[in-house]
Design a protein around this nucleic acid. Structure first.
Lengths: 117, 117
DNA sequence: CAGATACTTGAACAGTTATTCATGGATAAT
DNA sequence: ATTATCCATGAATAACTGTTCAAGTATCTG
């Protein structure tokens, strides 16, 4: 656990965490972020957008949810900057913002696929 | 997004996702996992254990929670195999199970530190 | 054995969250 | 202009989650 603003010790090019327990504030931010990824429908939305840019209506059909529900969830994903959008006429096209989500997915998959001890 | 059991296309040693929308089951598993990381106190517990192996009581004091609350949370972390433990006398020592948690932390930190567009 | 310590567990309660439903705003079509 | 379409939003409700509290198990001590 380390990032640019935290106290770390560089060892062979790798940051080794020296910091103590996460501050309540940092823990809160982490939790808020991961909490957004703690909903199955949001994952389905993200995976749909991983394929291609989609309008809200198309997205709703793709993941079998109401447009309203999808719209609510897109707002959550927007505030966490996981998706971005562009308006065209009365349509709004959404897409994934960056590929952090891919790395998180992969890391989680690896963990979940690990054999039990 | 890819893992060993999903349909992927190998390109230069990297799996490129071809699969469609995540199945409800897979999305559910992802959500359950990330949901566990969606609580600030669990992050504080994990960060404490990142420093060193700790007993439940020590952990409770370190993160300023009741022993009961910590114990409940440890059970959650255990079921997601994020922590492991060993008993010694009447004490139970907990520690991080693997370093996936570090990678997830780092990936999330990077995302959160990204500048707005 | 009796009591103390370390931890776990179940129930209950408060706070949070995700959906639905109804509505409103903006743009396009007729 | 009127109507239809696409999407966003607020309120309400049902479901879920995390803590506390009370009790229970296991181990150690005197």
């Amino acid at each position: 656990m380390s990032n640019s603003e935290d106290k770390t010790v560089p060892v062979i090019g790798v940051d080794v965490p020296v910091e103590g327990i996460l501050s309540v504030e940092k823990a809160q931010r982490m939790a808020e972020f991961f909490g957004v990824l703690g909903d199955p429908n949001r994952w389905r939305i993200l995976s749909a957008l991983a394929l291609k840019e989609l309008r809200v209506g198309e997205l709703a059909e793709a993941v079998d949810m109401s447009e309203s529900a999808v719209s609510h969830q897109l707002r959550v994903l927007r505030t966490m900057r996981l998706v971005s959008y562009r308006k065209q006429g009365r349509s709004v096209y959404y897409c994934l913002k960056d590929d952090h989500i891919f790395n998180l997915y992969q890391e989680a998959s690896e963990h979940l696929d690990e054999p039990d001890d």
